[in-house]
């Protein structure tokens, strides 16, 4: 068992200081913005909760919120099962395993704006392989800059391409940590592949799946750089996710007050979702099964 030792705080202190330095000071500044109307560096008026009330009534913002929620749901529903399936199918040892890991990780190591650039090029009908194939070989009328549906699909496929590898890597590592004895026991019982997956592999993947789910939810809910490069939030508002709308407000129109109020609400929503996921999955494994 763990021993109780409050002096352990001394070991944690560097982490708290380094993170708080970059987390708390900017957060205080943002809270400060959110209750003021800012005209210039030295001209500001206290407005109280006005920006918060405005934010909650903003219909464009609500549109961006539901769009983002739908996007995150699609991302989680597609990437998690696909990632688990790929991790199960990858070779377990030998040079093939090493090669697979290096290849799988490639999209993760590309800077996010480069990912956007790759897909911006790839989807173009004139110079991109993907766009050319869809238009000329399949005869579809694919154009991500004009058609809202095409733009949405491009961003979604890009995200699956970009982030499924994270789920694969985490699950792959989780699978390698399962002791061989479990599989031997299953073989003695002549368990079918599905039973092995359901009763041995899936329960042992709970921890890594929690990390994958949380990371994917946070990052897809905060997605900014990649769709910004590819579609710029358009056509119309079709791919304007929360972060894109937020930066239009903060940088484009320099409405710092409303933008700050908005980002505090945004921050809170993400925390609530993550807290729900976190406790839900923690309790799932500690339930009646034990």
């Amino acid at each position: 068992m763990k021993t109780t030792n409050h002096r352990a705080w001394l070991l944690v202190l560097p982490v708290v200081i380094s993170v708080a330095f970059s987390a708390i000071l900017p957060l205080i500044t943002v809270i400060n913005y959110s209750v003021q109307d800012i005209f210039g560096p030295f001209q500001r008026v206290f407005v109280g909760g006005e920006w918060f009330r405005d934010t909650l009534r903003d219909s464009e913002l609500r549109g961006a919120f539901f769009r983002n929620l739908l996007f995150s749901a699609e991302v989680l529903l597609l990437e998690i099962p696909l990632g688990v399936a790929v991790a199960l199918a990858l070779p377990a040892k030998g040079w093939r395993a090493s090669l697979s890991l290096v290849l799988v990780a490639l999209p993760l190591l590309i800077p996010w704006n480069v990912v956007g650039t790759i897909w911006q090029i790839f989807g173009r009908a004139d110079i991109g392989l993907g766009g050319f194939f869809l238009n000329n070989t399949l005869g579809l009328n694919y154009n991500y800059t004009n058609d809202p549906f095409d733009a949405w699909m491009t961003v979604l496929v890009m995200d699956i391409w970009h982030w499924t590898p994270l789920v694969v890597l985490l699950c792959y590592a989780g699978l390698r940590a399962i002791p061989e004895a479990y599989y031997q026991a299953a073989r003695i019982d002549a368990a079918k592949p599905w039973a092995i997956f359901r009763y041995i592999q899936l329960p042992r993947l709970r921890g890594v799946l929690l990390i994958a789910l949380l990371l994917r939810f946070m990052d897809s809910f905060l997605i900014y750089t990649e769709p910004f490069v590819v579609t710029g939030g358009g056509p119309g508002n079709a791919t304007t996710f929360l972060s894109i709308y937020l930066s239009k407000l903060a940088v484009g129109q320099f409405d710092l007050g409303p933008a700050a109020a908005f980002s505090l609400i945004y921050f809170l929503i993400i925390q609530i979702f993550c807290f729900i996921f976190y406790t839900m999955i923690l309790n799932l494994g500690k339930g009646p099964a034990r």
């Binding site: 949380l214 946070m218 905060l222 993550c274």
Partner: peptide, 14 residues
């Protein structure tokens, strides 16, 4: 963990 969740757009200026 929550520090991964701050939306960058507004936190950039601070």
């Amino acid at each position: 963990l929550t520090n991964r969740m701050a939306p960058a757009a507004v936190f950039l200026l601070p």
